[in-house]
Simulated scan of single mutants.
Amino acid sequence: MSELTLEQLADAYQDYFSVEHSISLNIRPIPGPLPDEAALLNAIPPPFLLASEANSLNSSALRSLNRLGELAEELANYLQQQARKIDLLLHYVLRQQDNDAHRYTSLSYGGSGCSYLADSPMDTLQVVEIKLFLDNNDGAVFCYGQVLSCQPQQDKWQVTLVFSRIREEDRELIVRASLHQQSRLLKQHAQRRQQQTQG
């Protein structure tokens, strides 16, 4: 994806489902054109690459256990506990990448982009560096985006960003995290409705 028009950005934003949920974001405007793929790969901080690699290793290890039969369940439980320890450590390391000066909280996010409230407006098509810190130790993503829209919202500005330069495995991570969050929200909603009918 090279330099896009506003219309192309709007189309790209519709490509994936989005969930309304608060996660921590770091948004930093950067000057000049959208960096290319090579520049993105060079700019990704090592902890983000480490977290991504650990995530894919966990998934592939658990998939291969399915062929072991009866012992697989116990072994899978053990490996999941070990993975949980590593996740907690990685979560701590990733949080060191969270910069107070650039921190915002998302209104929504998904595979195409995210939205948040800012104190000051941004120009459409402005290129930004984005760090997303997903909930429940789901990982973190570093990518570049562009401002799709910036609308006044009371005394703030609602900024909508499109992920214009992102690794596919990171997009998949965001999609999985947003689907998990949607599933949790639906479950909570169902439980509330059940409690209301019982009460």
Rank of each mutant, 00 (worst) to 15 (best):
E37H: 00
Y116V: 01
R67P: 00
F48D: 00
L34V: 06
L90I: 13
A101Q: 13
Q96K: 11
R84E: 15
L49I: 02
I27N: 00
L57I: 12
N55K: 13
E73S: 14
S52W: 00
L107M: 13
S24R: 03
N99V: 13
I44G: 00
L107C: 10
L62A: 01
E20G: 05
D98H: 12
N55V: 06
N42E: 08
N42H: 05
L88F: 11
Y104V: 03
Y104K: 07
L57E: 11
A54H: 10
F48P: 00
I23M: 03
A76W: 04
P33I: 05
Y92L: 15
A118N: 02
S108P: 02
L90Q: 09
R84S: 14
N66V: 04
N26T: 02
R95L: 14
L57N: 11
S18L: 07
V93T: 12
P35E: 06
Q82L: 15
G110T: 07
A38S: 10
V19N: 06
Y16S: 14
L49G: 01
E53L: 14
L71Y: 08
A39N: 05
S18Y: 03
A43G: 06
S108A: 14
L71C: 10
A38V: 08
H21N: 06
S56K: 14
A61V: 08
E53R: 12
T105D: 07
Y116H: 00
P35I: 02
D36M: 04
I44D: 00
Q96C: 10
H91S: 13
S56Y: 13
A72V: 07
E20R: 08
P47L: 07
L65V: 03
E70C: 04
S60P: 01
R28Y: 04
R103A: 09
N77L: 12
S52P: 02
D36Q: 06
E73C: 06
I30V: 15
A72E: 09
R95Q: 15
L75D: 01
L34N: 03
R63L: 05
N55I: 09
L65N: 02
E53Y: 10
S22E: 12
D100G: 04
G69Y: 07
P35S: 10
P29F: 09
A76S: 15
Q96F: 07
Y92A: 12
N55R: 15
I44C: 01
S56W: 11
S108K: 08
A72S: 15
L49N: 04
P29M: 10
R103D: 02
L94M: 14
R84Y: 12
A51I: 07
L34M: 15
L88W: 10
A61S: 09
E74F: 10
L88C: 11
A83P: 03
A38W: 03
E20W: 02
A101I: 08
S52D: 09
L25D: 00
Q80K: 15
I86Y: 03
P31S: 15
F48R: 00
A39R: 05
Y78I: 06
L57A: 13
Y16I: 11
H102F: 14
P31N: 15
Y78N: 07
S24A: 12
S59Q: 15
N66M: 06
Y104H: 13
A39L: 09
D36G: 08
D36C: 07
S112M: 10
D98Y: 05
H91F: 11
L89V: 09
D100Q: 12
S18F: 05
S64F: 04
